[in-house]
Structures are given as C-alpha cells and as structure tokens.
Design a protein around this nucleic acid. Structure first.
Lengths: 225, 225
DNA sequence: AAAGATATACTTGTATACAAGCATACAATC
DNA sequence: GATTGTATGCTTGTATACAAGTATATCTTT
C-alpha cells in the first residue's frame, strides 16, 4: 500500500478515495486483500468516517466487497465484471468517437494533437510509464469533444476493473502499438472518417483481451472464477 | 416527501437511499429542494450517518448537489445531464438488445412474454400506474438475457434523471404506445431480428424526447438552464 | 484426545459529539 | 439611510463512542 500525502484543500474522503483507487489500480492492494476501516484510517491520519465513505463508494463500483461484521476486501478479478466493463467501454467509446468525428473543431484537434505528440515523445525516450495517464487523457478529451464528459466521469471508476487487468499484463511490450492507435484515431477524427475511427477503437480495446488469459494462469489467486 | 416504513432486514443506509430515490423520481422531492441531513434523519427515525451515506451516493449520480457548510439540494433538471443519461441508455439498450436477439432462449422468452402480457392486461384495465415498474422490469430482463446485468445495475440510479422527466410529462396518454413498443420488441427478439429490434429501441426512447420541451415551459423553476 | 462452551479481539453499522464555515438578522456606527 | 460588525443558528465534515455480530483461540468437559 503506497500512501501519498494529502493535497492542501482535498477533503479527507476524497483523499482516502484517491489513495485507494491508485493502490487498487497499481495492484499494491492485491485482489483479495483485507481492508480494515480502522487500520486504513490511522495509516492515512484521518478518522474512520471519511475512510468508510470512500469504501462505500468503491463498493458501489464493485471494487471492494463488504461483508457486515466480517470485513471488507479488495474484489477479486471477476471475468464477468471485466467483460461488462469492457463492454461499456467499447460501446461508449464507439458511439463517442463517431460524435467526435462530427463535432471536431480546431481547438479539439489541437488538444488531441498535443497529447499524441507527447505520447510519441515519451515512447521514443522509453519513458513508457508516462503513457498510461496520457492514454486516459486522450480518451477523456474525445469525450469532451463529443460533449459527453459526464458519461466519462460516471464510468471512470468502473474502468479500474479494466485498467488493473491492463496493469497485470506485460504491457510495455505493446506501448508502441497503443501510441500508434492513438495517432491513427486522431487522423481518422480529423478526416471525419467514422468507419475507420470505430474500427480503430475496437482494435485498440481488443489488444487487452488477449493478455487476460496469459496472466490468469500466472496469478490464479487474483481471480474469482 | 412520502416516507414508507423500513423493511425488516433493510439496513438504515439502504432505507434512506430507497426513500430518497423514490421521492426524487416521483417529484415529491422537487428539483431544488433543500435536503437537511439532520431533518431527514429524524424523519426516517435513524441517525445522520446512514442518511449522509445515502446522500453521498446520490451526489455521485448527480441527483443531489452538496455544498459544504451550506447545504444539499435535489439537483435541478439539467438538460445536458438528461441528454447524457439518454445517450447512455440508448447506446447500451441498443447493444444489449442485439445481444439478446442472439442469446435468447425459451426461458428468456417466457419471462418477457409474461411481462408483456401483464402490461397489456393492466393497460386494458386502465391501471397504467402498474406499467412503469413493468417497463423497467422488461428492460432489465433484456439485460439479464444478454448477461449484462451489472451494466444495468450500474446505470440504474443514473436513469432517474431520465425517469423523473418521464414522470413530469403527461405520459398516461401514450402508455398504449409504450406497451405496443414492448410487444414489438419481444417479437423482434423472438425472431432474432436485430435490425428491427434496434429501430424499436430508438423509437421507444424518442417518445420521451418531445415531452421534455413541453414541460420546460410549464415548470421552468425545475430546470437548470 | 476430541468436542463443545466461552472469552476475546476483531469487524462493520449506527449514533452522537465536536469543528469549521456560511448566511441571515440585527444592532451599532458613520 | 447605508454600511459594517457581530451574534446566532444553521449547514456539512470529521472524529469518536457504542452496538451487534463473527471468527478464532482457549479452556473446560467428556
């Protein structure tokens, strides 16, 4: 469990939420780990109440399971859950990138262009750890362009199911492909080419489907069924 | 604010959540209404903690807005929010009904058939208030058939944005159309006719788009912008 | 030794107390 | 009269106390 310091004006609940999300995503909180409200509260230097509130929110996203009077646990990787998260991601990404193709303007192009340039830069420097955030930011920008930013927000926590599996795969090998996908998506959006854009989204998301089976055998204790 | 009694084994948080959802949906809690944690707690006969936890959850779904040290309010109807909820509903319903066309079996047909028969029965008896729940149940069943029940669950609270606008419209006039839609959807699913099924979903959801503008002028105080 | 009762140390759920900030009413001052 | 300071009562945010249930270890009993 890696604990960063609290931001100046960040309230205790958001702080607890941020730390827990990060650690679940990075697998520093491994699937199945026990989470004690009291313990976490003292570790974070806050009281039980905001910690508990954060846990409840993660429970609603099925990232933590709470059994009354017994304990709370980081959810095991549930293939059905991952599949449904991927499903949501696929159909919304698809619909949103079509809208982006229609509604794109120069400002939007500039935002995406800057992002992809940075990805290409960090890739060429081998700083692939920077790419994960840029990846997410790229997709968020597309939602912004399509004026579906609330949809993105609503689904963001849920996508941790998806992203934590990403983090389990030997992903760095394929970073250059991911960056290439983004470059191609950008060009398709600029050209208003919906068909290609949609194809790219599906190809992009399919990259992660294969890895899941790889790691299943390596870390069976992380999986539910 | 209409307050029903607590279920036997229902915990205080779920109780508060249920009551608040119902009242927001039915507009007994009108958009803009102040919600005091203390007041609601005493009304429900529970303490502030579970009430607060319920309010936080509804805040995450943008159904309540909380301003620290100032108060919490039932969110005004935000056309962008409604539009994004409708967007989610449309694209997921579309994708899910396609899957249902592929994965339907006799058991699934039986469930849908029973539901539609009941809708037709209540419609013929003029008991249109029963139809709302059956409508939701019908759609949930389709998600179950497509094995996307978590997707339904995740989105269910969000759909209150959509449903409360439904409740504001002079909807009873069109109940027979809604029931007809469901009958047609069922037949399309049985026939495995994806194209027709998708068309029906879009037609179905478009029925509510018109009403919004009608009521906007009648109840401008409910709207955000 | 095996089985069962029991104490104990946890857990989450709920209630309550306190802290900090905002808004309003009202009084004092210019 | 207008403005400013202030007291008051509200709000949510956080901390803590208590309730109730579970699991485990240990002791007692057979």
């Amino acid at each position: 469990m890696k604990i960063e310091t609290k931001f100046p004006r960040e309230n205790a609940r958001d702080y607890a939420l941020r730390i827990m999300k990060n650690n679940i995503l990075s697998l520093d909180l491994k699937p199945g780990t026990v989470i004690s409200e009291n313990e976490l509260a003292t570790e974070l230097g806050i009281s039980r109440t905001p910690v508990r509130e954060a846990i409840i929110e993660l429970s609603k996203a099925y990232l933590i399971e709470t059994y009354p009077q017994r304990g709370s646990f980081v959810s095991l990787i549930d293939p059905k859950m991952v599949e449904e998260a991927r499903f949501i991601r696929r159909i919304t990404d698809t619909a949103v990138i079509e809208l982006a193709c229609e509604q794109i303007d120069e400002k939007g192009i500039a935002v995406l262009e800057e992002n992809v340039v940075l990805q290409e830069f960090y890739l060429s420097k081998g700083m692939t750890d920077k790419i994960f955030d840029l990846d997410n930011q790229f997709h968020k920008s597309i939602y912004d362009i399509a004026e579906k930013d609330i949809v993105y927000e609503i689904h963001s926590t849920l996508m941790l199911h998806f992203d934590r599996v990403r983090n389990l795969s030997v992903s760095t090998v394929k970073d250059f492909k991911v960056v290439g996908d983004h470059r191609n998506m950008l060009e398709a959006i600029k050209a208003g080419d919906k068909k290609t854009a949609v194809e790219l989204v599906n190809k992009h998301l399919n990259r992660y489907q294969i890895d899941e089976k790889e790691i299943r055998s390596k870390r069976p204790e992380y999986f539910k069924a």
